[in-house]
Design a protein around this nucleic acid. Structure first.
Lengths: 210, 210
DNA sequence: TGTACATCAGTGAACGCGCGTTCACTGATGTAC
DNA sequence: TGTACATCAGTGAACGCGCGTTCACTGATGTAC
């Protein structure tokens, strides 16, 4: 889940990307309210009015951040699962491979500790307006739809061991990563996300392989 | 997971509890940095110096909050699992019953949306010192040890389907709740935590029942 | 039971600093003819 | 290709407000004898 390279961007767009990168790290480390415009411009080496040229209000930085993150995740997610689909005939194995790669990509982060921007914002949602809440939801819902579609394909070919709601199971795939990120941050142990996804994958295999 | 009742407390202790309750709601809603002493004292109807009589610095409020939360969770957790152990002969069924009750207790929160205080703090850990990080870890580790001990008892009587690391599986029980809370907040849908725990319980049963 | 004293649970006023935001401006870059 | 003009990407100085923190204080409650 990479950021567009800076070479082809105009000066202004490059500054903007730098500000977004700095803000993302800072917000994942200490939260939105504790991340000051002052520290961002010091690191980006511009003045405060330079910042407000790019983002009329602080909350516009938050919105831009979520929009960019959503786009990056949508792109990364799409590529990961399209690649996994192409590499496996069996839809179950394709999903498992995709989920494994997704977990791996989730811990690649600009910060020392992994963190999901949308999750970080969701624990500070009281600060934000409806637009931001919609962006947070979109980020989650996009992943969920991708996984749900693949679960349907699997369930069509091999009936599950027991009746199960596929929406709930799609949520599980998201929740596994989100929960593992929290545990990773608390334990300060990088392996957690991959470990937890491995357990979920083992569960999926057992469940659909009868 | 309830708070000690106010009747038996001294005046000062009662004010302190009120401040902690207000702070907990506010922090779960918008984060620690965005929660001002000013808003807490307005709601508690005391002056600012009254606040500083109880908590010499703002961070002492955070520490007191985590300590209280840890104690409440330790107590609630202990009772839930002791009760489940007493009600079931089979250690697997006892754990499943305990986990179900734990999930139910996790969504009972002072805020409209469920939220784990330690998780909220972990997404703002850059603000805090080593003592706070230790308190966050303690909260997590205590739950994990309880679950791990029960998993060992289960694995001793019925060997698992496949080799599995019980520490990792104990983490899964924690991560399920944490991840589900995030999804619940994002989707604004109260059922998520119970649903996700139900899936994990089904998985546990399948895995240890061979 | 009454008095003396200590601690508790606050009040009230003031502080300095850093925050987000505004405004009038300037030099660099891009576009039209 | 050169010139004219518009837009872009900033600068610099100032703002008011709310934040966490300090300090000297007071009245209420608890304790010892």
């Amino acid at each position: 889940m990479s950021v567009p390279d800076g070479k082809t961007l105009s000066r202004g767009a490059r500054t903007r990307e730098v500000l977004l990168d700095l803000a993302q790290s800072a917000i994942l480390e200490k939260g939105y309210a504790a991340t000051s415009i002052e520290e961002l411009i010091a690191a980006a080496r511009i003045t405060k009015s330079g910042f407000f040229h790019h983002f009329p209000e602080k909350i516009d930085l938050g919105k831009a951040l979520l929009r960019r993150d959503n786009a990056i995740i949508a792109d990364g997610f799409g590529k990961i699962f399209a690649g996994a689909d192409a590499a496996h005939d069996d839809p179950l194995e394709a999903l498992c491979a995709g989920l494994e790669a997704y977990a791996k990509a989730s811990i690649v982060s600009p910060t020392p500790r992994p963190g999901c921007l949308a999750a970080a914002f969701s624990y500070q949602e009281g600060l934000f307006d409806e637009e931001i809440r919609a962006l947070i939801f979109e980020s989650y819902d996009m992943r969920r739809r991708q996984i749900r579609a693949r679960l349907e394909r699997i369930a069509a070919t091999r009936p599950p061991r027991a009746p199960i709601d596929l929406d709930t199971l799609a949520d599980t795939a998201i929740a596994v990563v989100q929960g593992a990120i929290v545990v990773d941050r608390v334990r300060d142990n990088e392996g957690v996300v991959a470990q937890q996804m491995a357990i979920f994958i083992a569960f999926l295999r057992a469940f659909f392989r009868g």
